[in-house]
Design a protein around this nucleic acid. Structure first.
Length: 659
DNA sequence: CGCGGAAGTG
DNA sequence: CACTTCCGCG
């Protein structure tokens, strides 16, 4: 079988954005890896494979060599390179895919999440660079998706691209070998050329690929096209890896897993449809086969000159839905959803007997009938091992599953309700306690915002503004906790998922300084999966969710946004839901935190390390204070986060000076 | 092979 | 800071 990577998609271009920030430094390894991944020429050396964001270094020595060349470190070897990669674990940029040699997985979110609309929206106010105004472009049908970085992204020499027209340059950026060499033109480049025999610019290659894939390119502005966002490489299908075939025994996912696959559901004119393999959402990567709705939103172009992307609400809905499932499947903290305004979280389903002994439970997702999403309620009975990518022989002991409890949304229900109440409620299954549903009011974004959690599950639909809603059904009535069984999702996955939502993760700080016990990463992780919920937690909480500013009043006007709260929730206020209750922030942070901590204390291990790094940003001080005001002043954190992400995403410096 | 500490580098 | 180098451990 060929590796999915062949047909891989690439990261969105903006992911590569150099944005040489003030200290734009040298090229970073992850960036370099990304570069290699995006070039077809290197598919024999390194390629996307496996789950979303997962890539395999098919030829470690070669990769090391290339890296060494790039950095002018002739002594580089895989051992060293891998050490560097390992440092990324703590940074959460990468994960190791256990059981698969030379296989790592990007934590794409870390890198790019920032670019998500939600985030931007939210952060926009705060200082996200480039972000466009928080107002929805269209009447409410689209999400605004200002790339955090200007569209020019991709190419190294930003100047070139920077032309006012922004778009104009598409063609040009090309050549500059991204993988450039130490001395100009020589070493690495040459290698590159060798590989592709002609050296098409990276871009070019992509473009071609894109065209092949859908041929839609022309329709849209080049820069803004889907492709731009989610650049994909048409896979050359026939590659065969020279290095062990064993790599992926049987991958369930046909596709390449690169992080931002095109949307399957692309709009009619859209291209995505053309891509054969249904892309997985980044967030979903791990979800048991079939149980989740794989979906990646496909941004469409917005008319705005500033290159703003818009997401189709439906798409978003699907996307979110998918995320939601992931969350539940992988026991992500509900907090994750805080970042998504007006979303209703779908409820996870228990594994059921459907899968005897099998691994993970699949979750069924239901979309609100009104939505165009995926078929409601379809469940996939066979999420089992067979389907799971990792399941196979690689991991014999997959069976080991551990239980963890999902924490229902925080307790502050009252508060929550109140907060949310205004948002409208739909409710669906209500659970008593909160179950699972959260609704996000808005979040991080505005400083003033208040994050909301609704206890109840609500149904989702798009609100007038176009926000997607996801519904979550409560698994159990239990108020506070749910038990779910998950199979070995070891930290990796957990982390990952976690991170996916962790828009702002990155700086985590802990109150408790260190724990006596250090947890180490275990290899098959059944045992102690270190989860890093804290990150999210912190981040999430730090940023109080502001009211759904997204659309401003106007949008709300439409029918009521919809975030519904559970039946319990009293205030059905219909109509305009989003109430800006800025002051309303609920200091959920801790609440969640504690709970999750219990389960996740494993994380602490990392804390040690991370802590060191992140300790810097400690200004967390009174997070706990129940007072809501804390929430009001999130700007800093946001800003910081954004900056971080940006930074992360940014530095693509291709050029390298002489050694 | 993979991990991560420790020291060193620019 | 982001590695690079070295290394012991599993």
């Amino acid at each position: 079988m060929k590796t999915p990577g062949d047909s891989g998609f690439a990261f969105p271009e903006w992911a590569y954005k150099p944005e040489s920030s003030p200290g734009s430094r040298q090229i970073q390894l992850w960036h370099f890896i990304l570069e290699l991944l995006r070039k077809e020429e290197y598919h024999d050396v390194i390629a996307w494979q496996g789950d979303y964001g997962e890539f395999v270094i098919k030829d470690p020595d070669e990769v090391a060599r290339l890296w060494g060349a790039r950095k002018c470190k002739p002594q580089m070897n895989y051992d060293k390179l891998s050490r560097a990669l390992r440092y990324y674990y703590n940074k959460r940029i990468l994960h190791k895919t256990k059981g698969k040699r030379f296989t790592y997985k990007f934590n794409f979110n870390k890198l790019v999440l920032v670019n998500y609309p939600f985030i931007d929206m939210g952060s926009a106010g705060v200082g996200v660079p480039q972000s466009a105004p928080p107002v929805p472009t269209g009447a409410g049908t689209h999400f605004r998706f200002p790339p955090s970085t200007p569209s020019e992204v991709l190419s190294p020499s930003s100047e070139e691209l920077r032309s006012p027209g922004v778009f104009g340059t598409v063609g040009r950026r090309v050549a500059r070998g991204s993988v450039s060499d130490c001395s100009d033109g020589t070493s690495v480049n040459s290698e590159i050329e060798e590989g592709n025999g002609g050296g098409l610019g990276e871009e070019r290659a992509s473009e071609r690929a894109a065209e092949r894939a859908g041929g839609f390119r022309g329709a849209i502005h080049p820069r803004l096209s889907h492709e731009a966002m989610f650049r994909m490489y048409g896979g050359a299908g026939g590659h065969r890896a020279h290095r062990g075939p064993e790599v992926s025994g049987h991958r369930v996912h046909p596709e390449p897993l690169s992080p931002f696959p095109a949307s399957p559901l692309a709009t009619p004119g859209g291209s995505a449809a053309l891509l054969a393999p249904p892309p997985l959402s980044p967030a979903l990567s791990m979800t048991p086969g079939g149980s989740h709705l794989p979906y990646t939103p496909s941004p469409t172009l917005s008319p705005m000159p500033g290159s703003i992307f818009s997401f189709n609400p439906e798409d978003m809905q699907r996307y979110l839905q998918a995320h939601t499932q992931s969350v539940y499947n992988y026991h992500l903290s509900p907090r994750a959803f805080f970042h998504y305004p007006n979303i209703i979280v779908p409820q996870p389903q228990r594994p059921d007997k459907a899968i005897p002994g099998a691994d993970r439970g699949a979750i069924t997702t239901q979309l609100p009938s009104g939505l165009s999403g995926p078929p409601p309620g379809h469940t996939h009975p066979h999420p089992a091992a067979a389907a799971h990518p990792l399941a196979p022989s690689d991991e014999p002991h997959h069976s080991s599953s551990f239980k963890f409890k999902l924490q229902p949304p925080p307790l502050g229900r009252k508060q929550l309700r109140e907060a949310q109440g205004r948002q409208g409620s739909l409710s669906s299954s209500s659970t008593s306690g909160l179950g699972s549903s959260l609704s996000f009011g808005s979040d991080l974004s505005s400083a003033s915002g208040s994050g909301l959690v609704s206890n109840s599950s609500s149904s989702g639909s798009l609100n007038s503004a176009g926000l997607p809603k996801i519904k979550v059904e409560p698994i159990s009535d239990i108020e506070s906790e749910e038990e779910v069984e998950v199979t070995d999702i070891s930290d990796e996955e957990a982390d990952e998922r976690y991170e996916e939502f962790g828009l702002f993760s990155g700086h985590r700080r802990h109150h408790h300084h260190h724990h006596p016990h250090a947890f180490k990463r275990q290899s098959n992780g059944t045992a102690a999966p270190p989860l890093h919920y804290d990150d999210l937690e912190e981040d999430v909480f730090k940023a109080p969710a502001p009211p759904p500013l997204f659309f401003g009043p106007a949008s709300s006007s439409r029918g009521g946004p919809v975030v519904k709260s559970e039946p319990d929730t009293p205030p059905p206020s219909t109509g305009h839901s989003h109430t800006p209750t800025p002051s309303h922030c609920i200091p959920l942070k801790l609440r969640f935190k504690r709970r999750w901590d219990q389960e996740q204390h494993t994380e602490e291990a990392e804390d040690k390390k991370v802590r060191g790094e992140e300790r810097n940003g400690e200004r967390e001080e009174r997070e706990e204070s129940g007072s809501g005001e804390g929430e009001n002043s999130p700007p800093h954190s946001h800003r910081k986060v954004s900056a971080d992400l940006h930074r992360a995403t940014a530095q693509l410096s291709l050029e390298n000076k002489d050694c």
